[in-house]
Amino acid sequence: MVKVKKVLAQTYIWLVLLLMYLPVLVLIVFSFTTAKQVGQWSGFSFGLYKNLLTSREIWVAVGNTFIIAFTSAFVSVVLGSIGALGSFYSKKKWQSLYDNVTQIPIVNAEIVMALSLCVMFTFIGTYVFHNEIASYWTLLIGHVVLSIPFVYISVKPKLQQMDPSVYEAALDLGATPMQALRKVIIPEIMPGVLSGFLLAITLSLDDFVITQFTRGAGLLSGNSQIETISTYVQSHIAKRPVPPELRALTTIIFLIVVVAVIIITIRNIHKSKQAKVRKGRD
C-alpha cells in the first residue's frame, strides 16, 4: 500500500516537472533545425547556432543583461547589507520602520514600482535637469530597487542569530568597533550576503517591466535604448513566433541552469554530510 502510494506520488511529481519544462524542451529540440517555426522540421543542422554566434544584436543584449545584473547586485549587496546592519543596531521603533518600508517593493506590483520610478525620473528630468535623464543609471537604480529588499531580508536574520557576546569579547580584548565588524560581524553575515547576492542576480536577469520603464540609451547598445535579453525577446515575439536564433540561445541558457542545479545539489549534499559529521561528534 505504502509502495503504491509512493509510486503514484513520484509519478505525479515527474509529470508536473515534465509539463513545466515541456515548452523549453520543445524549443531546444527545434534549435537543431533551421525551420522558421516550432513544429516544422527541415533536417538536422547546427545552422541556428552559427547564426546565433554571428548575431551582434543578441550578444549586445546578453552582454547588457549581465552587466546590469552584476552591477545592480553589487550595489544592492553593499547598500542592503549595511542597511541591515544599521537597522539592527537602531532603536526598536526605527527598526520596525526599516523592516516595513523594505517590505513595500517585495509585495508591490512591479508595474506600479516601474511606473512610479519612470514618472519620477521624467519629472526630475524635465524640471531639474531640463533634459532626458533615462540612461544606464536610472536602469541601475530600478534594478537596485527591485533586489535590495531581498538582500536586506537575507542579511537581517543572520544578525539576529549572531551571538552578541562574541562581538563584546572582541571589544573587551581591545578591538576597535571597525575591527570587530571586520573580524566578527562580517563573517557571521556572509552566508546571508551571498544568498542575497544570488537572489539579486536572479531577479535582475529575469526582469522585464522595470527595465522597460527605466532604461535609456547606453552600455553596449551605444546611442540606442539599452536592450536586455528580456526586452529583445519581447520586441521580437509580440506578433511572431520566437525567432529561430533564440531557440539556440534557449539551449545555452538551459545548459547553464543545469550546471547551476548540479552545483547547488553538490553543495547541499556536502552540507548535509557536514551536518551529519557534526551530529556524530556531539
Partner: peptide, 22 residues
C-alpha cells in the same frame, strides 16, 4: 521546480506560446 525561474521569463512565455500554437 524552482530552476525555470532562471530561464528568462519572456523567453519562457514565448516558448509556451509556440508550443500551444503547435
Amino acid at each position: 521546480f524552482i530552476a525555470p525561474m532562471w530561464i528568462n521569463f519572456v523567453l519562457r512565455t514565448g516558448a509556451t506560446r509556440d508550443l500551444l500554437t503547435w
